[in-house]
Nucleic acid binder design. Sequence first.
DNA 1: GCAAGGTC
Length: 625
Amino acid sequence: MAPQRILCVAEKPSIAKAVAQHLGGGRFITRNVRGNTFVKNYEFDFSFAQWGNCSVTMTSVSGHLTSLDFADRYKKWQTTPPGQLFEAETVIKIDPERKPIADNIQQQARYAKVLFIWTDCDREGEHIGSEVREQARKGNARITVKRARFSNTERTHVIQAAQNPVELDDRQASAVATRIELDLRIGAAFTRLQTLQLQQLGDLLADKVISYGSCQFPTLGFVVERYFRVKNFKPETFWSIKVTYLKEGVKVNFSWNRVHLFDRAVVTIVFEKCLDARLARVTKVQKKPTSKWRPLPLTTVELQMQGSRFLRMDSKKVMKIAEQLYQKGWISYPRTETDQFSGDFNLRSFIEKQTQDNNWGAYAQGLLDGAFRQPRQGRHNDQAHPPIHPVNYVTSSSLPDDERRVYEFVVRRFLACCSEDAKGEATDIEIEWGEEVFHTHGLLVLARNYLDVYVYDKWESSQQLPHFEVGESFEPTEANMTDGKTTAPGYLTEPELIGLMDANGIGTDATMADHVAMIKDREYVAARPKAGGGRNAVQEFVPTRLGVALVEGYDNVGLDVSVSKPFLRKEIELKMKAICEGRKTRSEVVHESIEEYREVFGRTQRNIGVLKRSVRKYVFDEDVG
DNA sequence: GCAAGGTC
């Protein structure tokens, strides 16, 4: 009897290849797929515990296979009232460029006994798996469907997954289907409404698409909120007390524990009491070991934040370059939420590859010679990808400048993760003077450890403090009442924005940079180098007149929750979770959410004058009273 | 001409 055929399908070509290499034991045949240059079919034999010795075809899709759109009769903006899009018929389509991939799955399924799905083990992966199943069944209605549960492509882990197939999780797949439907209906309805209405106001907007999306609007909201905080900022004067004492030739500055007060008279009285007391007394001298922690394993969000901070690249660019480095095989998959390495991850083999570098090679060798420490574990794990790390060594000179800098960051970060924390000794001295307490702090860096390779962190010894004894008294050499003003916050920088999006669940690791790019594209915000930051300043975002008008307009339309706030998105996220846990069904959630948004939409439509007035005020400079 | 999420 001929061996059984098993069809394995991964989410992307790189996973298909990695799995094929492990299961095929290095022996497999590679075949091209007609019509697509990225997807390949790998053929090999493997002995499954469940199905015996099988001939396997391992292939992949390239992300989602299908997309959701409205039926053709709703395509015309002029003839479809936007509100109709909440219930308009939708169709699931396979885009022409994905057709060859879908056909390949159908054909391969025809003679296979089992479809074994190897998409990423996250919600989207579960949905992509259901799309693959759909195609496979078109080719073979009776095919058995299984799913591999794996969270990295280490050899033993992959084999373990191959021998322990599980079921596809339909709940997760329908949570994603729900998200897709809601995003389409809500996004399209609001986009058409506001575009058609606001274009009427004048030429400035006549050709513009004024889009709405559950991620792009909250992203814009963060930028506008900060803008108003800057704009409405009123500086306040404060007063403080500074004490200095010259001892053993060192001028020691003591700061007031109350930092500063906004009442001059009170500070004056306090200060006079101190002066009356004349002598200050040392109440605490504490020396204790301190450390600066090595960084966590690298996630996408962190790469984007640190990229804009240290490498002066915007998030979109960092991701593009990381993608190129990944395609060339220099770094691991760059879209990951995971900040913990699994126990069986072979860290040393990747450190080993870096020992040949002129700049950090010696450091890497030092790790192998005993300085190595198991990386800290963060709290995130997407169950699909390991933290970003270098997988192969490439010399700096053979990379274009931008790629070189991102690669260097990934390598240094990785080596830093595998290092010992920096160690130091902190000295804290407190004095009482009159009724007030003042303090000073000293730091002596004893062992730089990870700082030697992670050049982006700064931790320096302070000036050496002289010796103090508890109980000793002295007359301050100098004491002053100082004044100052509170300063306005700056405009939102790119790392701050990415951080806010991450904290509020706006977008995913793979899409955050796209949302930021989108609000720039739509001309809702403009990016510019932060003032005073010099030639290499970090980017900051200032909303355009249109951006301000949209947010302020919606804030005044009379909605319970403004569409520029992250809450509505968070709600969708919670409902998806409820579907995954079986507490709600897809149709319940779609129904609930559509009703809720229909209400928001109706109110916006009835009060569209408020939105228009806001746009006339900001964009057209009209006096709207 | 709309979204957000995968991916090349």
